[in-house]
C-alpha cells in the first residue's frame, strides 16, 4: 500500500510541475502548485503509517500554510488583473532585461 501511495504522490507532483512549466494562465499555474503541495501531503500521510503521527501533524501545517498562501496569491492575481486586464503570463512582461 505504501509504495502505491508514494508512487501516486510522485505522479501527482510531476503533473503539477509539468503544469507549472507549460501553462501560461496565472490561475492554472497556481492550481498546479496547489496540486504539488497536496501530492506532498499524500506522501506525508502515507509515511506516517510507517513512522507515527509526525507526518499527519505536518499535513495540518501544510494545509494551513497553503490556505494562507492561496489568500495572498489570489489577491495578487486580482491586483495584476486590475492593471493588465488579463492573467495570461504571455501578456505580462513589463519587467525584463
Amino acid at each position: 500500500m505504501l509504495v502505491e501511495a508514494l508512487a501516486l504522490s510522485a505522479l501527482l507532483f510531476t503533473i503539477g510541475v509539468v503544469g507549472v512549466l507549460t501553462r501560461r494562465n496565472a490561475i492554472i499555474i497556481f492550481m498546479c502548485v496547489e496540486l504539488m503541495l497536496n501530492a506532498v501531503n499524500l506522501s506525508f500521510v502515507a509515511l506516517s503509517k510507517l513512522y507515527g503521527a509526525a507526518g499527519q501533524v505536518f499535513v495540518v501545517f501544510t494545509m494551513a500554510v497553503a490556505a494562507a498562501e492561496a489568500a495572498v496569491g489570489l489577491a495578487i492575481i486580482i491586483a495584476i488583473f486590475r492593471h493588465q486586464r488579463t492573467v495570461n503570463l504571455q501578456n505580462i512582461n513589463l519587467l525584463k532585461g
Partner: peptide, 9 residues
C-alpha cells in the same frame, strides 16, 4: 504587481 506575481508563483 508584476514583480509580486512572479515572486509569488
Amino acid at each position: 504587481a508584476e514583480g509580486s506575481l512572479k515572486y509569488f508563483l
